[in-house]
Amino acid sequence: MNQQNLPGESTITTLWIIALVCVLLGCCCGIVSALPALIVSIISLVMANKNIKLFQANPGEFLAHSYSSVKTGKIMSIINIVLSSIIFLGYMLYFLIYGAFIWTALATGLTNGAFNEFSDDFNSETYEENSNTWEEDVYRGWEEEVDSIANDTLLINTFETDTLNQR
């Protein structure tokens, strides 16, 4: 009898090695590496199961070491699936928890008005004191060269004076 290797034996071996490398990178590179490792491992497992069924249907046609190589590929694919799933789910959980904390902080800041304090500096009261509106300053800036440093200094000085008088 002329025995041969199982079809796809080398492909299965290559896929589980690639998946293992991606799993190892997944520990440090995160979800970007864990998801491809999961996909490649599933493909390798499906191919290994198909080849094992083929060998069991016709054991005399294929070499025994080819069968053991495919079984090793199946075991390594399962290990890669488990590890990459743990890494993937761990990073997803991390992003969900971290996102919840960020969202809570943003929502609290919006509720308390913490983000409004910057917009209060640019209210119209400062411009009313100088009898210029923001639109007039912009329009005048297009017609003639305006010394923005002097205008900014004036606005800063009036702001400082107003805050000192309030104390």
Rank of each mutant, 00 (worst) to 15 (best):
N5M: 07
P7W: 01
P7R: 01
E9R: 13
E9D: 04
T11K: 13
I12M: 02
I12Y: 08
T14M: 14
T14Q: 15
L15H: 07
L15I: 03
I17Y: 09
L20R: 12
G30C: 04
L35M: 14
S41W: 01
L45C: 05
L45D: 02
A48E: 13
A48K: 04
N49M: 08
N51M: 11
N51R: 14
I52K: 02
K53D: 14
Q56G: 00
G60Y: 05
A64Q: 13
H65V: 11
S66H: 02
S66L: 10
V70F: 10
T72N: 14
K74Q: 15
M76A: 08
I81N: 00
S84H: 08
S85A: 14
S85R: 01
I86S: 07
Y91H: 09
M92S: 12
L93M: 10
Y94K: 06
Y94H: 09
F95W: 07
L96K: 03
F101C: 02
F101T: 09
F101I: 12
T108W: 11
T108A: 15
L110C: 13
T111S: 12
G113I: 09
G113S: 07
G113C: 08
N116H: 13
D120H: 03
D120W: 00
F122E: 05
N123I: 01
S124C: 00
E125F: 02
E125M: 01
Y127T: 02
E129Y: 11
S131D: 08
N132H: 08
E135A: 06
V138R: 10
R140T: 05
R140P: 00
W142P: 00
E143Q: 13
E144I: 09
E145M: 01
D147F: 09
S148V: 11
I149H: 01
I149S: 02
A150F: 06
N151C: 00
L154H: 05
L155R: 13
N157T: 13
N157F: 06
T158R: 11
F159C: 04
T161I: 04
D162M: 09
T163A: 09
Q166T: 03
R167Y: 01
R167S: 05
